[in-house]
Amino acid sequence: MTAATARVAEPGTATVLARAAGAEWVRLRTVRTTWWCLLAAAVATVGIGTLAALDEAEMAAAIGSTAAATVAGEYGTMVGQFALLLVVLLAVTSEYGSGAIAPTLQWTPRRGVLLAARVAVPIAVATAVGVLLALVADVLAKLLAPDLVLSSGELTGSLGGVAAVLVAGGVLTAGLGFLMRSTAAALATVFLLQLVLPALLPAFGELAADVGELLPGTGAVWVLIDALGITAGHATTLLVGWSAAALVAGGWALLRRDAG
């Protein structure tokens, strides 16, 4: 008889966290949306990245210079990151739409554990896939345009930058998802902060451009394309600061508010 069963020792927090992380992984791979997003990320990163690299190779050749093959992965990630961030976002927000957050919290009621697992696993997956796709784009660009330069040192640095951008963007996205609990609202916000505003604001005068330099997307663009006149410290501050702030706000919402 179950009700009379003696209480056995509870597993420790590490075990509970490992199980929750395993459950997050099963959640990700058992919905089709994840696979569609990853396919979209592959097409965007490899396709657009390679095209951009071929263009660079041509322009470089025209002035008798050479370009790096790693621009393929970097330009590709500028675009493809959004499909990857969508995987992260849906892992957080889809359960608020369907109400499935209630069963989830019945299975993992320690909310700190759920927060850790739900931030770590989808971001790890998105980052691993993103780095792999950037690598594929770089190699493909080199194969199609042998003039492009592909050194292992440059490749490591470039892929490290891709990983940093995806981790920072992922944490920002997850945090906003936990805070807003709405796919549409959080998606729009991530899009504005990460791509649209940093790209548009400089066209609206100096004041607007100054504001743009405070946005997380500016840091991401600096890491990937190096097109903006900011320092490495400034870019790092943006990426770390925004993700940390979003994670604190989102974590607060998950830990303190009603389930939803």
Binding site: R27, T33, E95, G99, A100
Partner: peptide
Amino acid sequence: QAVHPGRS
């Protein structure tokens, strides 16, 4: 009803 509709 509070189940992810896309999962089995």
